[in-house]
């Protein structure tokens, strides 16, 4: 038993501060135990969520020393005796009070995700699937909805403006799960992910996979395969990058450190803009594909010489600048 130093964020939507505490810590305890001890002694109204205390329900997500974690699975023995442990609420979601945030964003995204489509002609009890085939989707169904991945993803962390169009890694694995479900009757899951869930925002930084307490390989097993298959018809340079270079530190020198593909609406002063920034642009057309969904590489079969344009064959070069919303930095 020993006294340890804690700094815990106290406050609500109007603001708050880190408060210092000295708390007793016993052998084998986790951060959530310490919070419970504070509740039972000094701070009965300290707000935090928890249910199972065994890493099964995904309620107790918070940021511990800046790292998004389940507090019931963060053992005190992982910190130095003298270390101050700083506990703050999830940053990506609005604070309700203390360590509790408003995670309704995630439930809204879940609602927008088309549900499982039962196969026609199969009655209950007649479903037959092989273990091998269900295992891929089962990996994603392990998700405990702790929303740590959602909290970590830089596309929405500190980018409120992207929340409308971006469903987040939790719902990419849901899309992948249904896409890989042996009996799901819906066939356009990947396209939906690209068009409606904002899969294109993701530049495969793998931060989501790093924080997932269920060790779901969100990027490798869900996002990349989804992107790859969409790419059969649609060009996405980041996939090639992600496929070859899988670690974030390796991606860094190639990709810009800024979030690379934030294709969300650009807001610029009208009077300064040489072109019409308010215009909603058509997404680039995919390249022409054959019956197998592949680009024809054989020039003999194709109606033009050389490979098809990655931007779609309907694009004429040079492009008419008034049809772009590209903002030239020099014109600022």
């Amino acid at each position: 038993m020993s006294k340890r130093k804690f700094r815990i964020w106290r406050g609500d939507a109007t603001g708050g501060e880190l408060k210092n505490y000295q708390v007793e810590v016993n052998e084998g305890e986790v951060v959530l135990d310490v919070i419970h001890r504070l509740q039972a002694t000094e701070e009965p109204d300290l707000a935090c969520r928890w249910n199972c205390k065994a890493g099964k329900c995904g309620s107790c997500s918070m940021e511990i020393n800046g790292m998004p974690r389940l507090s019931c699975m963060t053992r005190m023995s992982t910190f130095e005796e003298t270390e101050t442990v700083t506990v703050t609420p999830l940053r990506t979601f609005p604070v309700i009070r203390d360590l509790v945030t408003d995670v309704s964003f995630n439930y809204e995204k879940a609602r927008e995700m088309p549900a499982f489509a039962p196969p026609v002609g199969l009655k209950p009890g007649e479903y037959r699937m092989q273990q091998m085939d269900v295992e891929r989707s089962q990996e994603f169904r392990k998700c405990i909805e702790c929303f740590l991945c959602q909290n970590t993803c830089h596309v929405v962390r500190d980018h409120e403006e992207n929340k409308k169009e971006f469903a987040g890694p939790r719902y990419f694995i849901r899309a992948a799960e249904l896409d890989m479900h042996p009996l799901d009757a819906k066939t356009d899951r990947k396209e939906l992910a690209q068009q409606q869930q904002g899969l294109g925002f993701c530049n495969i930084t793998k931060c989501c996979t790093e924080v997932c307490p269920e060790h779901i390989k969100i990027t490798d097993n869900a996002i990349i395969p989804m992107k790859e298959r969409v790419v059969d018809r649609r060009y996405d340079p980041l996939v090639m990058l992600g496929r070859k270079i899988l670690r974030r530190d390796q991606i860094a020198p190639l990709a810009s450190t800024e979030p690379a593909v934030h294709a969300g609406p650009v807001v610029v002063d009208e009077t300064k803009a040489p072109v019409d920034f308010g215009r909603e642009l058509l997404p680039p057309m995919g390249a022409a594909v054959n019956a197998k969904g592949k680009v024809d590489l054989n020039e003999m079969l194709s109606d033009r010489s050389a490979a098809a344009s990655p931007f779609g064959d309907d694009v004429q070069f040079p492009v008419d600048p008034t049809a772009l919303n590209y903002y030239h930095p020099d014109k600022l």
Partner: peptide, 24 residues
């Protein structure tokens, strides 16, 4: 109970399987 479990499959549940593809 068996009907209630089979029903879950039509909602999208993925139980572990037997060799012949049924619910293990």
């Amino acid at each position: 109970s068996p009907d209630r479990i089979w029903e879950l499959e039509t909602y999208g549940a993925l139980f572990d399987r037997t060799k012949d593809g049924r619910i293990s």
